[in-house]
Design a protein around this nucleic acid. Sequence first.
DNA 1: GTTCGTATTGGACGAAGGTCCCATATTATT
DNA 2: AATAATATGGGACCTTCGTCCAATACGAAC
Lengths: 210, 210
Amino acid sequence: MMEAAPTVFVVDDDPSVRKSLGRLLKSAGYRAETFATAGEFMQRGACQGPSCLVLDMELPDLNGLELQQALAGTGRSPLIIFISGHGDIPTSVRAMKRGALDFLPKPFMAQDLLRVVDEALDRSRREQKDRLELSIIQERLAHLTPREYEVLCGVVAGKLNKQIAVELGVGEKTVKVHRGRVMEKMGANSVADLVRAVEKGNAIPPPLGV
Amino acid sequence: MMEAAPTVFVVDDDPSVRKSLGRLLKSAGYRAETFATAGEFMQRGACQGPSCLVLDMELPDLNGLELQQALAGTGRSPLIIFISGHGDIPTSVRAMKRGALDFLPKPFMAQDLLRVVDEALDRSRREQKDRLELSIIQERLAHLTPREYEVLCGVVAGKLNKQIAVELGVGEKTVKVHRGRVMEKMGANSVADLVRAVEKGNAIPPPLGV
DNA sequence: GTTCGTATTGGACGAAGGTCCCATATTATT
DNA sequence: AATAATATGGGACCTTCGTCCAATACGAAC
């Protein structure tokens, strides 16, 4: 199975920068898409393969930091490499605190950018794998009935069927039936698997308070 | 039980900065210790309570980034807030990529520093709690006999006693005995607890390749 | 109004887990 | 040589878990 081509998005208001970065990235073997404004990029939906965003800090509509936040607000959080002609330290620090991967002052050397892009795509692949696993687990969790979910909680808390039954005010028999269905729906072969799945599924990335 | 006083370390070669920051931090209610060089700070051992480090980037012996790495190399990784009079963007970005909490160009406003210090100490408390849990688990893991550890692996992999017995070439009975001891030594009341403990215990913070 | 999903339970049975007491063998330590 | 820790088991016993077949009840959807 072939992996989707790695894509690098470029958002920069300077046409010559877009053109030269586009060329550079394509020559390095990446798919490149360029945008002149934050708005344009927001319109383009997320892509499936690994990707990252090379983002100019100074844009006509939103500035780079604002776009970074806008994307985070809509659930998209691509790996961002900032580039900037007039950046200052506080701006770069804020960008990094919000999760940017790097911040390159213009002008930068092509190989520096390519190295960072390469790292970004590597990380993007890993994140994509993690997100896929997570979404599968959450999908399965969502298909549990309320009762099944209650039983699940008891099981991963290490309680006995008997205890769970008392807490829910039902017979131990009933708990067993639900429990069996939980194992089946979650695709777990053992309590150990179940615990790991639930731990992963509840791992909510803490929002960066920056 | 009273928590150890939060401590802020200051490393700066300028005596007037040390003095004024020391005063500022003490007036804000923190314990403050100041150092003129990286070497001096390295000599002082880690403290127990929550702490963070306010670190000047320009020092006579090592520069700030070097001290940051030197500390990481010895297993200490205090939360670092850089301050710098002559910083540039690449330096600040590198510092942030290596995990610094913030990077304040001099001169900065006292309240800005205090806000960041406060956040750092909050995080330090959380990290300390996590490290404590981790060390307890690792301590317990270290007290398992080799055989018990093998059995533990089988259990958290969701295997049946019978399967584990076959793999280890022993009787199911023996596995049960080891398993019982594992549960006792690990302080686990259920397989679920055991799985969570092992997952935590194996969570090795990935080194920042920066 | 019938069908579907959900929740509930019974009886029965076997598999698996856990814990007593007891026993042996090896190795390391003292 | 004696002691302790480790590793290995037997026998007995109870608990817990899982699954088979079967049934009832409620609400929502078609």
